[in-house]
């Protein structure tokens, strides 16, 4: 029988990557055609914050974004495998629930069988959200083990992010499940900054060009 220490070690290596990534974050090559202005409608443009490419500001903002994304509250549901992670040490979820095609679990082990619309009171009880799920099987959006550079590129790649454009990405900061990271239930640590700070950094990163930190 296994005591799941594997994922804990993984987390440490991710942190190491993060440090290296930041050290190397001189201006990277900006290769992401995010804005794709020609296709934008006036309506959507008006709802977007000002757009001004600035690789230094962008990379700096992503550095903050990254610390949130790889914190247990976000990464635990963006695992590298098909089993979510659990706890502040990001161990493999007890009882090994599977992602399933739609990200909502399989058979008798669907997320919402335990995860209720709201947090269950008490320590070590299932946190809740009406829409609790992992990314679906065809768009796994893995955070675990990703370097800052890899994650930045992945987040804005329409093929990997569920065909989200700039507007949708910005909106995603206020997604119900993203917000749930800041309401994690008793005994769980919060992401390393407030949601407002995270949202600001997220939007800054995106609107200054969504540059990826240099490095692998």
């Amino acid at each position: 029988m296994t005591r799941q220490t594997k994922s804990k070690r993984y987390l440490h290596s991710v942190k190491a990557f993060a440090v290296i990534g930041v050290l190397l974050s001189v201006i990277g090559v900006m290769a992401f055609a995010l804005d794709n202005g020609k296709e934008k409608t006036v309506e959507s443009e008006s709802s977007l914050p000002a757009f001004k490419k600035d690789s230094i500001t962008s990379v700096k903002a992503f550095k903050q974004v990254y610390t949130v994304l790889i914190s247990p509250r976000c990464m635990n549901c963006h695992p590298s495998g098909n089993i979510p992670l659990q706890g502040d040490d990001s161990h493999l979820h007890e009882m090994s629930p599977q992602r399933g095609t739609d990200g909502k679990g399989v058979y008798a082990m669907k997320c919402s069988n335990c995860h209720q619309p709201t947090n269950t009171p008490g320590l070590h009880t299932p946190p809740g959200n009406p829409n609790w799920h992992l990314p679906p099987a065809d768009m796994k959006m893995v955070f675990q083990g990703r370097t800052p550079s890899q994650l930045a590129k992945q987040l804005i790649d329409p093929k990997q992010n569920g065909h989200k454009d700039m507007k949708k990405l910005i909106e995603h900061a206020d997604d119900g499940l993203v917000l749930a990271g800041w309401n994690p239930g008793e005994g769980r640590t919060l992401p390393p900054m407030s949601h407002a700070e995270f949202k600001k950094a997220w939007i800054t990163w995106l609107t200054t060009g969504a540059y990826a930190p240099k490095g692998k």
Binding site: Q116, P117, T120, P126
Partner: peptide, 26 residues
Amino acid sequence: GVAQCGACVVHLNGEAVRSCVTKLSR
């Protein structure tokens, strides 16, 4: 009482929910 053991599984609209953490409101 904390959705660990599955002894309390019932079907709610056909899904195998853990009744020990499923509130009456749901």
